[in-house]
């Protein structure tokens, strides 16, 4: 797992928007989606269109987005089960007795979950880890939390590489995996990984202290976003809010 997250390094209008604007925009958009009753199908179509427009402006390749959608899989399974297990009035579809509320609930989870994931992909694919941290800092996330996040992001690739090397070492000594008997081998390796990670954490702290660290991380020094940038970044989210409000007012 790379320390860059899902970042797609191209230059686009969306990439250039300051991270704090994008985080707020994502949050507002998802909130609008989540608060829309599931039966307002047209609203979800509009949300989808807004997102697709944003993906196009951000120049994101389709495979990146679709591959990442896999995180949703377990919930798709859950959603597909709903029509069969939910109670209440039922409808006949192709000879199957499906619960009406179950069908709607499945749609609800699928539509909102998918839109949420795509919106999140839009953020993570257009924002580098450093920008993201600077954005969270601008949004007044407690500095200790920003510092922990920063170290986590920095060392994600280092720890993952350690893990990867340990797996190679295990497999090159004839380990094939799958058998419960080997659980101990994995777990022992994970234990060693913790000791390594922890000791690295200690050394990093020593390195910080030896360069004068006294408990406060320097600010990442990102300049604030301009009003124009806020307006530009929030365009789609505000449109989504308008859709959500309309859906509420006109009902179905």
């Amino acid at each position: 797992m790379s320390g860059d997250g899902l970042l797609v390094a191209v230059d686009s209008k969306v990439h250039r928007i300051p991270a704090q604007v994008k985080i707020v925009a994502l949050f507002v958009f998802v909130l609008a989606v989540v608060s829309t009753p599931a039966a307002n199908f047209w609203a979800f179509a509009l949300y989808g269109a807004l997102l697709v427009a944003a993906l196009v402006v951000a120049k994101l390749p389709v495979p990146v987005v679709s591959r990442r959608l896999a995180v949703e899989t377990p919930f798709i399974v859950f959603a597909l089960l709903l029509p069969f297990v939910a109670t209440g009035p039922t409808v006949d579809v192709l000879g199957l007795q499906l619960s009406q509320s179950g069908v709607l609930g499945a749609w609800n989870i699928l539509a909102k979950g998918t839109l949420g994931v795509i919106a999140a992909i839009l953020l993570s694919a257009t924002t580098g880890p450093r920008e993201l941290l600077a954005g969270l800092e601008r949004l007044r996330l407690p500095s200790t939390l920003v510092a922990i996040l920063s170290f986590m992001v920095r060392y994600l690739s280092v720890v993952s590489d350690d893990l990867h090397r340990m797996r190679i070492a295990r497999e090159s000594r004839g380990y094939v995996g799958g058998r419960a008997g080997h659980l101990k081998a994995i777990a022992g390796g994970v234990g060693a990984l913790f000791v390594r990670s922890f000791e690295r954490g200690e050394r990093v702290h020593l390195a910080m202290q030896s360069r004068g660290y006294t408990g406060r991380m320097p600010l990442l020094g990102e300049v604030g976003a301009t009003r124009a940038q806020w307006m530009e970044g929030l365009t789609i989210s505000l449109a989504a809010v308008a859709v959500a409000v309309t859906a509420r007012v006109v009902g179905l």
Partner: peptide
């Protein structure tokens, strides 16, 4: 604790948890 041991330790532990969550075991 964090003042004494540094945020690095917590960050590394987080990176460790993240990495380990990706290890599947039978």
């Amino acid at each position: 604790e964090i003042r004494e041991t540094g945020p690095a330790l917590a960050g590394l532990t987080a990176a460790f948890v993240f990495a380990v969550q990706m290890v599947n075991f039978p």
